[in-house]
Design a protein around this nucleic acid. Structure first.
Lengths: 155, 155
DNA sequence: TTAATTAAGGACAACGATGTCCGAGTGTTT
DNA sequence: AAACACTCGGACATCGTTGTCCTTAATTAA
């Protein structure tokens, strides 16, 4: 029903929604969203192809939001990265015969519950608690010395 | 979340629960539950290994219920054929940082909804409507004539 | 222009879910 | 007992998802 990719996409999108206007590299998003970096890159590609984010290459590049997070639901995002298993139509139920009505009713009700939760949740709502992660240093420059490593994290 | 195998297992188990005491071949269950025959065989194996059903080989063999359908929940059955994705514990939520609380709360709520539906449904309840399928001829013996098909089920 | 940085895109590997097949075991018949 | 028919049980193949890697393209700084 809900795949791993779905959750990765939601986390990354929320992390991005917490930085409105900013262009964030995929590597940084992967760190904040706790997603394998190469795989998140793949997911971000899909989100860029479906115009949820826009990617910019080169120095200072990265991904930035291309939509209003208050108007995009979690369901739309999940559908963008992969087809979601929708509950059966009543027509399909008839095909199987009437014997499994009780079973299919319950299964479909469970599936509908998941869809509703996703439908009712906007990206902005899901990302509302984020911002706490901004307290930490985003990414540490690993270039050795030169101007002196100022990476004492415990501030 | 809920895999195809889960649904197959539930349908087959319901079909079996509608024939208490009987030993039904996997092929017949596959027909009634509308599941690919060779694949259902594999699922029935798992259900036999987990002692939900007991298999008997040879002529007149098949599968029979090994549990009380009123005391087995759909959740137990689903877990028997494959691990189900359970909601995160609050401890795991802390590991990821506090930023994604709202997101994970909703996702877990959706997952919990599915679990609850499965938990609240016993096999007996799900199979209550079955029996209608017994009106139809179960499987037609395709062996031509000889001693004549004496297996007219409609008594 | 050259070098550095970053996304875009495709090829490849690993894994589980799904689907198919053949051998082992059981009962019937001779 | 031996041969045979029937059915389960485990091994094999296929497919999509998940995850990694490498090459290419675009953008910026020097």
């Amino acid at each position: 029903m809900l795949t791993q990719t779905s959750e990765y996409a939601l986390r990354a999108m929320c992390a991005l929604a917490a930085r409105p206007g900013e262009t964030v590299p995929a590597a940084e998003l992967a760190t904040q969203a706790d997603v394998p970096q190469p795989y998140l890159a793949k997911i971000m590609q899909q989100l860029a192809a479906t115009h949820f984010v826009s990617g910019r290459r080169g120095i200072g590049g990265g991904y930035s939001l291309a939509v209003d997070p208050r108007k995009v639901t979690a369901l739309e995002l999940v559908m963008a990265v992969g087809p979601i298993r929708k509950p059966r139509t009543s027509t399909e139920l008839d095909e199987l015969g009437d014997g499994f009505k009780a079973l299919h009713e319950r299964l479909d009700r469970a599936a509908s519950g998941v869809l509703e939760v996703l439908q009712e949740s906007t990206i902005a709502e899901l990302a509302q608690d984020i911002g706490a992660i901004r307290r930490e240093e985003p990414v540490l420059s690993v270039t050795p010395g030169k101007n002196g490593a100022s990476r004492s994290a415990a501030g």
